[in-house]
Simulated scan of single mutants.
Amino acid sequence: MPELHALFGGTFDPVHYGHLRPVEALAQLVGLKKVTLLPNNVPPHRPQPEASPAQRVAMLQCAIAGRPLFDIDQRELARTTPSWTVTTLESLRAERGPRQPLGFIIGQDSLLSLAKWHRWQDLLSLCHLLVCKRPGYATRMETPEMQRWLEQHLAQQVQDLQQKPAGYIWLADTPLYNISATEIRQRRHQGLPCDDLLPPSVIDYIDRTGLYRN
């Protein structure tokens, strides 16, 4: 089997340590060599980003410079329709072929609300779900049916993720970072520092471009 390749979608408005550090920890736990960042264009479940697509890509490029684990895929930015995860995974699966193990990284909050996602039942036919902890969220699904679904698909060991192209859920014991892009934008609007929340290169870009100012 080819090596497991992981994908991580988000608005990244802006990208911050709460995105990067749990994924870096996950890569160590699972043995990932590559994580592809997928910036959303039209996020289905949240307001439109404050930064433009080009600005968000530029911030990602700043953030991953010197971090060879990461690369960027801009296919969702080329769409004018909502960035449905299942549609993106279908296009990636068509490109990578049926044998490539693919993992899609989500937070614990996304796992708990997965039943609200577009065609969520199809996700595990296309990828594994790699779940990072999030502070303050429940550890059980909302309904007994969803809890049974989760338990039926849990991977028992990391090697399971390499031995099938899709179909497992891995609950990763990653560090918790209580950081949100909303908080960062609010702090920037108020003229407050964010030095410990996102990489210096991203702060420098925000300063130079005047992003997130009133």
Rank of each mutant, 00 (worst) to 15 (best):
N214R: 13
T209P: 00
C127V: 15
H118F: 14
A27I: 12
I64Q: 03
C194R: 00
E90F: 01
I203Q: 11
E151I: 02
M1T: 12
L161I: 12
R67V: 03
I106C: 03
G10T: 08
K164S: 14
R187F: 04
R208H: 11
T80F: 01
A166F: 10
Q190Y: 01
L150T: 07
G10F: 09
L69E: 05
E95Q: 15
T81D: 13
H118Q: 14
G31F: 08
M146Q: 15
V57R: 12
T139W: 09
M146I: 00
I203W: 00
L37A: 04
M141W: 06
C132Y: 04
L154F: 10
S83M: 08
R134I: 12
A115H: 15
G107M: 11
A63M: 06
L89Q: 04
I203V: 12
W120C: 03
V57D: 12
T88V: 03
D204V: 00
I179N: 08
Y168A: 14
R99Y: 13
S110W: 01
L197P: 05
Q74H: 02
P101I: 07
T182C: 07
V23S: 00
V42E: 05
R188E: 01
L111G: 06
G103D: 01
Y212T: 05
Q74E: 15
A25K: 10
H5S: 09
K34S: 05
E3W: 07
H16R: 03
Q61G: 05
G66Y: 02
F8K: 04
W149Y: 14
L77V: 10
R140F: 07
L60I: 09
P175G: 13
T36N: 04
I169N: 04
A65I: 00
Q55N: 06
L197F: 10
P82W: 10
V57S: 09
L38K: 00
R208N: 13
Q186F: 05
R99P: 00
Q55Y: 00
T36D: 02
R185D: 05
L7V: 10
W170L: 07
L89E: 07
D73G: 09
W84H: 09
P43G: 08
M141P: 00
V35N: 01
E3I: 00
Q100N: 03
V23R: 01
F104Y: 15
A138R: 12
G18K: 02
L129N: 06
L126I: 07
L111M: 09
V158H: 04
I179P: 06
S52M: 07
H16Y: 10
F104K: 03
E183R: 13
T11E: 06
K133A: 15
C127M: 10
I184F: 06
L32V: 05
N41D: 06
R185V: 09
K33A: 14
T139Q: 14
T209R: 12
V57A: 08
D122E: 15
P199C: 06
N40Q: 06
T182V: 12
H153G: 03
L123S: 04
Q152E: 15
F104N: 04
D71K: 09
G103S: 04
A27F: 13
T81F: 08
D195F: 02
S113W: 01
I206E: 01
L171N: 05
Q157I: 03
I206M: 05
Q55W: 03
R188P: 04
L171F: 08
V42F: 02
Q55I: 02
A58K: 12
D173H: 14
D109S: 13
A51I: 12
L7C: 04
D204H: 11
